[in-house]
Amino acid sequence: MNTIMTEEPEIREESELAVEPLLRVETPVVEIKGLCKSFANRAVLKGVNLTVDKGENVVVLGKSGSGKSVLIKCVVGLMDPDQGEIQVFGNDISTLGYKKLNEIRMRVGFLFQSAALYDSMTVRENLYFPLKQHDRRLSPEDAEKSIEEILENVGLSEAIDKMPSELSGGMSKRIGLARTMILKPDIMLYDEPTTGLDTVTAREISELIVCMQKKNKISSIIITHDLACAKITADRIVMLKDGVIGAEGTYKELSDSDDAWVKSFFR
């Protein structure tokens, strides 16, 4: 799995490499080996192995409480695994210091289930905030240009001066996606991107995920139990069962499976 990429690694800004340079192994972009995580002596993940290649969309399916969200939170360092190894761009997340972890986080986008927009800020400020925090010398004109461009990409240019409380669920998700994409990540992690949305909006969000992925050539891990979303977005689906990967394949392979447990999801 640890094959060295054949293509040229992406050249990053010098400021991002202020600390000791990180390894630039790009394929696979995420590699999880034997990931275990427990809460109050209840094992949620019991040795998950998962690989995500460059440009690949991997959907993680599983029942509520099966540890799907925990899995991606471990990937981005919001939770520490009890056991196992998580390699992101060839760097073991659990051994990285805060500065190096933040370097990785700069390249990983995370769309929360609730979109997690900063509710004291307007849409413009929500988008401006991460930009300005990472580039203090960024001119207001350049920032405005980036904000307008990303809002156009998610189809919400008119919402620029709205407060998060004025947005619908679907709009919040789009703005959440825009806020993440404005930092131009190499990997996107989606935590149930279509939960709580109507069928039409859920489909629009799923299509937007694919559109953004193709446009920016990013890899994605999508946590969902929405089969319609999985069908639209997935290059590959992995299914969590009892804390391990219970099944893996394309949407078609899994939907045609004879396994009773897999069938129960695709009924």
């Binding site: 919001l78 370097e103 900063y118 925090q133």
Partner: peptide, 25 residues
């Protein structure tokens, strides 16, 4: 109330994952 609200709506985690130090901010 403000920080509590930010915590339960994952806004603090959202800062963390975008490499912004929420404690400092």
């Amino acid at each position: 109330a403000e920080l509590g609200s930010m915590k339960v709506t994952e806004q603090i985690e959202a800062m963390e994952v975008t490499a912004i130090n929420p404690y400092k901010y």
